[in-house]
């Protein structure tokens, strides 16, 4: 096993590798943003989806408010008698207003507006409720009753969630591949810059591993330095964006909360990029040296 010592000169201003830590910083910055976006969406999707799973919304429409109110009470009674249903709750007028206000504007919801009665139904996790059979049963009480278990919406929702997550993963992989390419380019450029030094080291009996170690250390440092800068910048950006979203929050947009535990994985990004740079530099140097005498 060959010992390691740094025989390479400090990087001069004209060398291409001088920019490498900054390029790595940009790569880590973009990766961290892509990962944060993915984690935020994942967390949001989970919350939204879990709030809808096992829920059925029953809607009774009509222009005669007294009639639909009477029908809703009967339907509520029928629902409570249905096996597999745990909770049945008619939404109050105030709750309906709160739901509609973001769309119609505050003060625009008058009493003569034909707002349907909404019943929120929570089904048991273990039980299966046949939606078609339930709808047929409720139709006997009112022709204007509609059931929605959100299955279609959830299906689209999950498709979107998976697409977003796979896109984020694809972006991460592309950034990693681009980083590998940049490190290969940087290593070859540096080797070309120092070819005389490498030749002298070889002629004095240096093993390829010794030369590779000097390069892998240097590029690991670049990766770590760039990684820490990129991570810091990404945190600043994420917090800045979250503050902007919080300023917008007025009901239309739910303020996203950072999944801190999951986001702690981002702390490993500088290490990941440093390791990637180190391994890539080593492989590149060993391959290049292998072509020499």
């Amino acid at each position: 096993m060959s010992r390691s010592f740094n025989f390479l000169p400090t990087v001069k201003s004209g060398e291409a590798t001088r920019l490498l830590p900054w390029v790595m910083a940009i790569m880590v910055y973009l990766s961290a943003l892509a990962a944060t976006g993915s984690l935020l969406l994942h967390s949001g999707f989970d919350n939204w989806a879990s709030s809808l799973q096992g829920r059925i919304t029953v809607q009774i429409t009509g222009e005669d408010k007294d009639q639909i109110t009477a029908e809703s009470l009967e339907i509520q009674k029928a629902l409570r008698q249905t096996p597999g249903i745990e909770e049945v709750r008619i939404l109050s007028d105030q709750e309906l207003k709160t739901l509609l206000e973001p769309w119609l504007g505050s003060g625009n919801i008058t009493d003569d507006l034909p707002v349907p009665v909404m019943i929120d139904v929570q089904t048991s996790e273990e039980a299966y409720v046949n939606l078609d059979a339930l709808e047929s049963k409720l139709k006997q009480i009112s022709d204007n009753v509609y059931l929605d278990d959100h299955a279609k919406w959830l299906s689209h929702f999950y498709n979107l969630a998976y697409t977003v997550e796979y896109t984020a993963l694809g972006i991460l992989i592309m950034i990693l591949l681009a980083s590998v390419g940049i490190v290969i380019f940087g290593t070859k450029s540096s080797m070309s810059e120092h070819k005389n030094i490498i030749a002298i080291m070889h002629l004095m009996g240096a093993h390829d591993q010794m030369i590779a170690k000097a390069y892998q250390k240097r590029f690991m440092y670049y990766g770590l330095k760039g990684g820490l800068i990129g991570l810091l910048l990404s945190f600043i950006t994420v917090y800045g964006l979250l503050n902007l979203v919080q300023d917008l929050s007025g009901g239309l947009v739910e303020t996203p909360t950072l999944p801190y535990l999951k986001m702690s994985i981002l702390l490993f990004f500088p290490l990941l990029f440093a390791s990637l740079a180190m391994v890539t530099a080593r492989i590149t140097v060993m391959r290049e040296l292998g072509r020499m005498v």
């Binding site: 060959s2 010992r3 010592f5 025989f7 002298i200 080291m201 004095m204 009996g205 240096a206 010794m210």
Partner: peptide, 8 residues
């Protein structure tokens, strides 16, 4: 010193 350092 280079040859000595290379030789460890």
């Amino acid at each position: 010193a280079l040859p000595l350092r290379i030789a460890g």
